[in-house]
Design a protein around this nucleic acid. Structure first.
Lengths: 386, 386
DNA sequence: GCGAGATAAATAGTTTTCTTAAGTATTGTG
DNA sequence: CACAATACTTAAGAAAACTATTTATCTCGC
């Protein structure tokens, strides 16, 4: 079976939530036998399952379809979020699209060996049977094909180390690494399924973006993309962890915002909650307006360059007064060429990392399982027995 | 034969210039029979031809391959460049990769009907036999699938009119429209074949960009992309033809540069040659440095977002003192995240619109000819008999 | 309750496309 | 001139998708 159709079928099923073989075939333009065979394969490995629809309003004639959905009855993937300050671990079922709900969290240590042993402890508390693989999201510049971190301004110790190797010592299963924002974008798509492409912009300890284009995450040949945070802002002189000067990230990450806040109000409570309260009371003070304007310019630039008209904002900006997002949205609209032709949408959403990690796992670990010994599958073998 | 392999084979042949069936098969990972059949098809319609290599140093053993290349013995495509001030027309052979050399040029009129009749006159002076189709490049936001111009700040009359319809009244052949910068990017790839992806940034009456990603021009679902020129620059208050304020285009297009020049030196010769002389003498004056800094920021943003590390600059910036390009290159490097990991390249190149139009024609008009009645082919039929 | 109509799923056979394997053609070399 | 080496062609087969047909299961009207 061509991998292409399989991926399309899964994507469609994700979009619909549940569907019969016939529905899938028709909506994809496939023949029924083809769709049926793909479904059979996926039922066999336990990726999908049939279930009895409680037909309240089956107003349709004819034989009812056997409805299919992701088989989420047992955890299949270990999902790991390696964050700058915190590492989170869970066992997740395919089809999980709820908000993040981590089973285990611990402060991210500052060396590979320590991280490995902390992960080892976590492993004991996680279901170990029937697992298909491990998926980890990492900040920074990640080569997803090799499983290496090339550059990580805020988490330098990951740079040389081969994370799949470390993880493989804990779980001897296929392992996939995914860049953080790409995972968020995939997670958003899984949780709020639409056909429409979008740019996800995440604001937190760093600032990053990822684009869904044509229903798929945008992945260029170079292991770098969507780096909104490290584009320079005219007039900004702050040094950045990346080695550059004036990066957007130094202004609009949590620490950047707090720094500006502290500079403008030396005697204020320069913590995040304090800042949130301040903005709730004072509204968009001038320096914040400038900062939002800068961020909007860079986001609008990304929209113009990628040809997108929807922005999904996740992370700390959503925790501020809603006026902040409105201000940002208006500024993005001013800078976006598409706004002259049609509508530009900016919305806030929670982070759905687990969902994104699961989507990555299905794409990179589960599908290759049923695709024989082709390209991607070989890559996985590399880590299988470490 | 799957269209995929055909396109790959043509791209490879373009890269190599000439090659035998066996070379093509090996370098593409195809079997010899497959490559051979594709070549046969293309020989039959006259897209490729065999030629006798003058074997100076055939140091190889065995039967020598029959070398193939594009059959450029007769013009096959009418290429049209609809520019803001000038329209250019030529008949071009496939495989033409020389610098632009237009057979006919006339001032672009300000209404569809006038343009059509000017084009009609031109048609009389152009080879009319054996033509496969017509390809036209247009500035602005172009829906290449429908053949419509959605938005054109500098050439408003094109917006409503169906250009393929107009062209079809002159030449009753398949017609393809292509966005200007995309054509330039394709042309550069045809003329300077490398495997490596790049961002083409063109500076002229407007400012635009296009990306080659994975060897193909980047095309998102929305009919807009690479719009470097209409991203706002912080602090810039000039109104733009697009309806926005502060677009980069208002600073760094030819007219934008001249406007800044005239403002800084009220008594100077504010023509383009005068400006070129001025810069050659004075070097990079402060306002020009600021302008280049803004352009570099937006280009670096595009590199970061697309995951590219090579910039090809075409158009008026290359006519200025070489120091200008060096300054721009240095500024781009400062803003590019990839520069922290590896090298960023910025080079200047001539515009190769004809080559790009021919590449578009092969892709959108010629290949569908040998692909039976599939998707793209139907689109062409629409215009075939107007 | 039962046949008719309608839709879903499974089965069988065909087409398309590419591959492997084998054979033929054309060169240089000992 | 035999041979090794390489290019190209032909023939047969495998994979994946399609069309057409059959079988299964439902609702509806009687």
């Amino acid at each position: 079976m061509g991998q292409w159709n399989k991926r399309a079928l899964l994507a469609r099923l994700q979009l619909l939530g549940s569907a019969s073989r016939a529905e899938l075939a028709k909506s994809l333009g496939l023949s029924q036998p083809t769709a049926g065979k793909i479904v059979d394969e996926m039922l066999e490995i336990g990726l999908l399952r049939e279930f009895d629809e409680d037909r309240r309003q089956t107003a349709t004639l004819g034989r009812p379809g056997r409805m299919l959905r992701f088989d989420n009855r047992r955890p299949r993937l270990v999902t790991i979020q390696l964050g700058v300050t915190e590492t989170s671990v869970s066992a997740a079922a395919v089809g999980a699209i709820g908000e993040d709900d981590w089973q285990i969290q611990f402060a991210t240590p500052s060396a590979p060996a320590k991280w490995r042993s902390a992960l080892g402890k976590a492993a004991g508390r996680i279901v170990g049977k029937g697992l298909w693989g491990v998926v980890a999201s990492v900040p920074g510049v990640v080569d997803e094909n090799n499983g290496t971190v090339l550059f990580s301004p805020n988490l330098h110790w990951t740079e040389g180390s081969v994370l799949p190797g470390l993880i493989g010592q804990i779980w001897s299963a296929p392992i996939a690494l995914v860049q953080e924002e790409r995972a968020l974008a995939l997670g958003h798509q899984a949780a709020a399924p639409t056909q429409e492409d979008f740019l996800l912009a995440d604001f937190g300890e760093g600032v990053g973006g990822a684009a869904m284009i044509g229903g798929k995450p945008f992945v260029p040949p170079l292991p770098i993309s969507g780096e909104l945070g490290h584009t320079p802002v005219l007039g900004n002189k702050r040094p950045c962890g990346c080695g550059g000067v004036g990066c957007l990230e130094t202004l609009v990450s949590t620490s950047g915002l707090l720094r500006s806040f502290a500079a403008s109000r030396p005697r204020a409570d320069a913590t995040w909650p304090g800042f949130v309260r301040f903005i709730a009371g004072q509204g968009i003070v001038p320096w914040l307006a400038d900062t939002l304007e800068s961020a909007a310019g860079i986001i609008a630039g990304a929209l113009n360059v990628w040809g997108l008209r929807r922005v999904v904002v996740t992370g700390c900006l959503g925790e501020l007064h809603p006026g902040v997002l409105r201000y940002l949205a208006a500024a993005i609209e001013r800078g976006s060429l598409w706004a002259r032709l049609g509508r530009v949408e900016v919305e806030s959403a929670p982070r759905r990392r687990t969902a994104g990690l699961v989507a990555t796992g299905i794409e990179r670990l589960v599908l290759p399982m049923i695709e024989g010994e082709s390209g991607t599958a070989n890559l996985i073998k590399k880590y299988e027995h470490r």
